[in-house]
Design a protein around this nucleic acid. Structure first.
Lengths: 194, 194
DNA sequence: GGCATATTATGAGCACGCTCATATTAAGCC
DNA sequence: GGCTTAATATGAGCGTGCTCATAATATGCC
């Protein structure tokens, strides 16, 4: 047996699986934490030993998906790599799209805002680390914020995009990455290069 | 007496005044809708005859403030006018800053997300109308979304800005407006010009 | 004023996310 | 196995935002 009983990890997975399944079939508002707990075979209170908030559960699911998008294109121009990174992330999130609007804000916002859930910081930091790898330089706090604003913009655009194959989103994404790369070449970008 | 009893407007104002006062002294999380209702001298249920959600009350306060920022600078370059518009808005929001993080998302998001509160659309549409006036052209949906992403970025940056006189925010704002104006001159910008 | 009808106010009640004192179980040691 | 102690599970209970059947009140007409 492991250091802590390995049922611990199994329970965590049961929660994630139950959440994924329930959300897909019934949406965010029609699934309560009690529903998730009982589907995972635990008491309601136990759920909160594993995740601090309902949103944090989805946060873990999203973090998983986004992590897989990292390094999806290892050559090409900076623009192309950024484009590929984000497009791959969105592709992975497709199944979450119907209920993503309900959690997107808490996922994209810094944790100081929810003041409980630090998972959101992990998602952001890991994504930004990948971006820094692609652009080949460390980003100033301002550039990080700028990138995240544009990235949030793309995600919220995508969430509402009704066009059949999300061409609108891809066009917007193209514009946004170009804009970010362009701003790397301004004063602000130069400053953060070591 | 007016068409509808004029106490109606008085009640609305009482709610807004009570909300403003309570939030300033006790913050978002320590003020319940029951608190607001009783401070305004009405029953809890009555509150929801006037505003659909707790956030919507703050939305009305914010809308008031932002409206006053419109047309604050009527000459100067496009960049300068945009800068002035946004800076004036932030100045007006100063008193709200401590609790703004709790509502900012629901204010900046399109109403489809909250699915109840259309006040947020009004704020966005009025602000964008002013932006269109300044840049002297109608904006395509994509450019509107791009502007709003950047604007949201500035606001969330400002909310977290610890620098003494918000110089960081002003620098970021400068960068953001420049970026937006630059993107007006690209293909995307040209397309939306009539 | 008196009656009928439309508006607005009311607060008990609902389901929710989340907490916390207590009960249950597992781990470590002899 | 028995005993002790630390980790985990439990679910009653809290306060919340919000709803809705009902009560109170205002309006329009005679």
């Amino acid at each position: 047996m492991r250091v802590t009983t390995e049922t611990k990890e199994a329970t965590r997975q049961a929660i994630l699986d139950a959440t994924r399944a329930l959300l897909r079939e019934r949406g965010w508002e029609n699934v309560s934490t009690r529903d998730i707990a009982s589907a995972a075979g635990i008491a309601n209170g136990t759920l909160f030993n594993y995740f601090p908030t309902k949103e944090a559960i989805v946060g873990a699911l999203v973090a998983d998906v986004l992590e897989k998008a990292n390094g999806s294109l290892r050559d090409g121009t900076t623009e192309e790599q950024l484009f590929a990174l984000i497009a791959a992330g969105l592709r992975g999130l497709r199944a979450f799209r119907p209920f993503l609007p309900y959690v997107i804000d808490s996922l994209l916002a810094p944790s100081e805002r929810t003041m409980r859930d630090h998972e959101t910081d992990r998602i952001r930091d890991e994504h930004l680390a990948e971006v820094e790898r692609i652009v080949g330089q460390r980003l100033s706090p301002m550039l990080r914020h700028l990138y995240w604003s544009l990235y949030s913009g793309v995600v919220t655009f995508w969430v509402a995009d009704q066009s059949t194959r999300q061409e609108e989103t891809l066009a917007f994404l193209d514009q946004s990455t170009a804009l970010f790369v362009a701003s790397l070449r301004t004063k602000l970008g130069k400053e953060s290069r070591k």
